[in-house]
């Protein structure tokens, strides 16, 4: 029973993706055909070679996602460290508000952010988009690092300090090695959020900064089967590749089985 249920779930998620792959390679799909016919490479040629926006949008997506991954992880580490190890005024305030961006309806949140971006002249800029993506990635990063810092015993840090370890040394030799799995996880989740985000990229990028996600919009709006499917395969493929590389590195370095949700 359990096995059947789990396999069914796996099929439900995989099935549409198989169809998308087929639709990017076959052009004839009239009702009531179940599987598309007539093999063609036209859609792939259009997407990869003829679309002048393709390469820039792919690069934009990657640049934004990598920057967001690094910066959100950094802010996540800093905030979690402060919350776990330090006592300061307003600690409980920070504890209550750090997840708040996830609970505000995103269109309302980003239209608000949009008004600030206009005043700061950050519209149409990479920096503006990265900051917007950070707002929705940092809550995850902080929640990832809190348990990691709680897991580092104070005794280890004190021992290091007694042995003459300065702050930088403490981070380099003790703290960073212990939170490396968290860094991988936080980076991947932030990367993913930025890579798949549509609305904030669109309104803050103002149509000037095109990413893979915003490039897809017209095809989806017009329900352009072949070209839409091809862009989707490229999108999912790129994402899988990035995660495959990250997993490979983490397996080599950390010797853990699966780093994304172990």
């Amino acid at each position: 029973m359990k096995k059947i249920f789990l396999v069914l779930i796996a099929i439900t998620i995989t099935l549409p993706i198989v169809f998308i792959l087929l639709l990017s390679l076959f052009s004839y799909y009239r009702f009531p055909l179940l599987f598309p016919k007539d093999f063609t490479t036209e859609f792939w040629k259009t997407a990869l070679l003829k679309n002048p926006m393709f390469i820039p949008s792919l690069l934009n997506s990657l640049i934004l996602a990598i920057c967001n991954g690094f910066l959100s992880t950094l802010v996540g580490i800093m905030t979690a460290r402060a919350l776990v190890r330090h006592n300061f005024k307003g600690k409980s305030f920070i504890k209550t508000i750090y997840t708040i961006p996830l609970f505000i309806p995103s269109i309302a949140l980003f239209l608000g952010v949009h008004t600030v971006m206009i005043r700061l002249r950050l519209i149409n800029s990479y920096i503006g988009i990265i900051l917007a993506h950070m707002i929705i990635s940092i809550p995850y990063a902080v929640s990832i690092f809190i348990p990691f810092f709680q897991g580092i015993s104070l005794d280890i840090e004190d021992a290091a300090k007694v042995l003459g370890c300065r702050t930088i040394g403490l981070y380099k030799r003790i703290i960073i090695p212990l939170i490396v799995p968290g860094i991988f996880l936080s980076f991947s989740i932030s990367f993913l959020i930025s890579f798949t985000e549509y609305f904030s990229t669109f309104i803050i990028g103002g149509g000037r900064v095109v990413t893979l996600a915003t490039l897809m919009y017209p095809y989806i709006n017009n329900f352009d089967l072949g070209n839409g499917a091809t862009l989707g395969v490229i999108f999912i493929g790129t994402n899988l590749l990035v995660f495959f590389i990250a997993e490979y590195i983490s397996r080599k370095k950390l010797k853990t089985d699966s780093y994304l949700f172990e």
Binding site: L6, V7, I9, A10, I13, T14, I17, L192, F195, T196, E197, Y198, A213, M216, Y217, Y219, I220, F223, G228, A229, G232, F235, I236, N239, L240, F243, S258, L260, F261
Partner: peptide, 19 residues
């Protein structure tokens, strides 16, 4: 298998799930 497919579900953007 299930873990991989769940992760697959996580990486598809909302806008593409509309498609």
């Amino acid at each position: 298998l299930v873990k991989k497919t769940l992760q697959l579900g996580l990486i598809i953007p909302y806008i593409y799930v509309v498609f």
